[in-house]
Computed example of a mutant assay.
Amino acid sequence: MTPVSTRLVRLLNMVPYLKANPSITYAEAAADLGVSRKQLQQDLDQLWMCGLPGYGPGDLIDFEFSGDTIKVTFSAGMDEPLRLTSPEATGLLVALRALIDIPGVVDPQAALSAIAKIESAAGTVSHDHTHAAAAVEERAPIESDTAAAVRAAVRDGRALCIEYYSASRDQLSSRIVDPIRVVLVGDHSYLHAWARDADGVRLFRLDRIVEASVLDQVAVPPEPAVQAPPDTSLFDADPALPAATLLLAPAASWMFEYYPMRILEELPDGYHKAVITYASEDWMSRVLLGFGADVAVLAPESLVARVRRGAAAALAAYADLTG
C-alpha cells in the first residue's frame, strides 16, 4: 500500500510533467513516473476531480485523451509556482512551528528549512535578509532516536521493533509492529500501528516508546486497518457533559489508558492533574471512591462534596461493623 504522502507528491508533480510533455503515451508516462499503467489511470481519475474552489466546469483540472495519449487542457494553476497570501503563509508558519516540537510527525530540520523559505517568499523579512539568515541558522530541536526511527518506518513502510512502557502494568514489553501513521490526540503524538502480538490495531504513545529500531521487513498491516481511521474515542470528550478535575497519585497513572482523561499538568514526584467528563455524578463519585487516597477530586465543588459524604458514610459503616 503506497503511503498517502507519497501519492500526494506524485499527483502534485504529474500536472506540470504532463503539461511539459503534451500528448505523451500512457506507457511513456507510467515509465517516467515509476508507476503501473493501472496506477497512472487511477491517478488521472483522482486529478480529474481536483481544482479551484467552485469545482465546476473551468475550475477542475481537465485532460484530453486521444487514442493512447494524454494531454492536459486545463491545469487549474497546478503548473504555476505556489503563491501564498499573507494569511495562508502565517497559518503555515504557525502550524510548522507547532509541529516541530511534536515528536515523530515531521523532520525538525526540514520543517525549519521550510519555515525560512516561507518567511522569505512571503516577504516577512527585511531587505538585508537578516531575518532569513537568522531563520536558516536557527537550531532545530534535537529529535530523539526513537522519534526519528518511528518517522522513518512510517515513511518507508518498514516494520518496527519497539520497547514500550505500559503504565497499566508498570513494565516494559518488546513488540514488533507494522506502522500505519503518526496521529495527534490532545497534547500527545501516537504511533497508529498493527501490533503483531495482539493481532490488532493499537495506539502507542510516542513518549512511552523507550526504544525503537527499524527492521529490514516490509510493514504489512491488513488493508482494512490501513483504510480505517484510528479509533480515538477513548480520548474524545463531549463538551456538553460536566467535567471533573482530579489529582492523581503515581499509583493511579494507569487510569490514563482506560479512561477518557486529558492531562492538564504534570506535577513533581509523578503526580498529575487531569480532567475527565462524566454523565452521572452519582456514578462518578462511586468510581472515585474506589481509588481511595490515590485520586483526589479538585472540582467541581458539588462532586467534591458528594465524594466527601460518600467517604464519611463508608467510614461510619466500618465503625459500626467494628462495634
Rank of each mutant, 00 (worst) to 15 (best):
P179K: 02
V201P: 01
L60F: 11
A228R: 11
A299C: 05
E266R: 12
E119Q: 15
D156I: 00
L303A: 12
R155T: 15
G200R: 01
D145N: 09
A193H: 02
G77K: 13
V9A: 11
E266P: 02
Y278R: 09
L11N: 02
A279V: 08
Q46R: 15
T73H: 10
A133K: 12
A133T: 12
P22S: 06
S23Y: 11
Y318D: 14
D238L: 00
D178R: 02
S285V: 08
S253F: 01
G51M: 04
Q42E: 10
P239Y: 04
I209R: 09
L247F: 09
P250W: 04
T6Q: 11
L303Y: 13
G77I: 07
P222Q: 04
L288C: 09
A311D: 06
L93V: 08
G157A: 06
M78R: 13
T232C: 14
L234D: 02
S120D: 15
E28F: 10
D45R: 11
P229N: 04
L82I: 14
A274Y: 02
G51S: 09
D269F: 02
S253R: 15
L84W: 03
V177Q: 00
R181V: 00
L289I: 08
L298H: 09
D62Q: 12
T124H: 15
M1A: 14
L247K: 04
E301T: 15
R10L: 12
A31L: 07
N21W: 06
R202M: 02
